[in-house]
Write a protein that binds this DNA or RNA. Structure first.
Lengths: 206, 206
DNA sequence: CTCTGAATAGAGCGTTCGTTTTAGCAAGGG
DNA sequence: CCCTTGCTAAAACGAACGCTCTATTCAGAG
């Protein structure tokens, strides 16, 4: 066996949660999809469905963080880095047939009223992503507060645009928001303080 | 009887869908909450659960549109109008104990894979809200394309910030995004063309 | 009055839910 | 050899699911 049963369960659960949400995904379905049996699932996750979901969301969160980090590091200019994130998200979303959206949103919204551990894991994932954006901006010379506020905005806007893109089955919302976010970032650079040399760049829009 | 049974069903379904999503809300629960019986529900909605959800989401969409319209019309400056929306959303969200979020997001995400009519209604609601913002910007002298792109961004960002605020149980994401969106809108006004007299206003930040 | 159709009320259908329980299997140390 | 340990397999539990069905109530038209 190439991958461990536990890992297969986590990966399958992550994909199913991303597509169908928490209540919409059954334990038996997860087991079937992971080519495992119900006994195995409860063996590795005595905490039941919620424990599986927590592990799966944590996994998805780290996976998305890696994607984000890659897109951010691929561009020197922070504004272009943000549009690059949006383009990447749009492309992946289209490829999946508009169904593989944000891996935490659906599960988070469903478990808000409860005192589940799930929302806590979702909050950690969100904060982690904001941290990635914030660090990138700090490295580009943004002030601590500007970086934090922009990071909240970037992650929030991408999150919302992703939902809009899924519902309308179009890349346009994500691409548009990516452009506008870049403009917002540049509005800080214009009056920026202590920016590294050359960071204002050639102002190419693509 | 003050309100009709049908209306009670729609209102109860709308609130439950907003809080628990589509799969998480049962027909019997809707009937109980609406002080109706299962027979009444199927009498008014022969289409079953999905038909109830469609009517409920449509209702929620119009309700939210009214809130949006009110917040937008309350301010002359479009930038301040946007922050006003964010503040209003943040306040309402806090008052509800962080559970009454966007009325369409949860239901939309859960039914994406299916060919349900629900996602279509959600798309209509989103487009309607964007239209409200876009019209406001047009009235303030923005170009057609700028208004459209900004409207997509504003609605998307508010959507995402609302989710973030719910998950982290804090008004801060919504308020921050509201501020940044205002800045983005002003970045157009600064180089704006053909703005109505006085629309640049006194530049107060609150 | 009778008749009709809208509206209400709820039992019960088959299915699936999350979970528990019991049994079976292969590997390894005594 | 036995016996523990880690893991798999499957049957079964009570509860809840969406939905169908029949029975009942009630208002207004003829």
């Amino acid at each position: 066996m190439q991958t461990s049963t536990r890992d297969r369960i986590v990966v399958a659960a992550a994909r199913l949660l991303q597509r169908q949400g928490y209540v919409g995904t059954g334990i038996k379905q997860i087991a079937r999809e992971a080519q495992a049996t119900l006994g195995s699932v409860y063996h590795f996750f005595p905490g039941g469905k919620e424990a599986v979901a927590v592990a799966a969301i944590r996994h998805s969160g780290e996976e998305f963080a890696a994607l984000l980090r890659q897109a951010l590091d691929g561009e020197d200019d922070p504004a272009q880095a943000v549009t690059s994130c949006a383009r990447r998200l749009a492309g992946d979303l289209r490829e999946s047939g508009w169904i593989d959206g944000c891996p935490v949103t659906a599960a988070a919204l469903e478990t808000l009223g409860t005192d589940s551990e799930i929302q806590q894991v979702c909050a950690e994932a969100l904060r982690g992503w904001e941290r990635l954006v914030s660090d990138k901006l700090l490295r580009c010379g943004f002030s601590s507060q500007d970086a934090r506020e922009l990071a909240t905005t970037v992650i929030g806007a991408l999150e919302g645009a992703e939902v809009t893109a899924q519902v309308t089955r179009s890349e346009e919302p994500l691409l548009t928001v990516g452009r506008q976010l870049a403009r917002l970032v540049r509005s800080y650079e214009a009056r920026g303080l202590g920016l590294p040399a050359g960071s204002l760049g050639p102002e190419t829009d693509r």
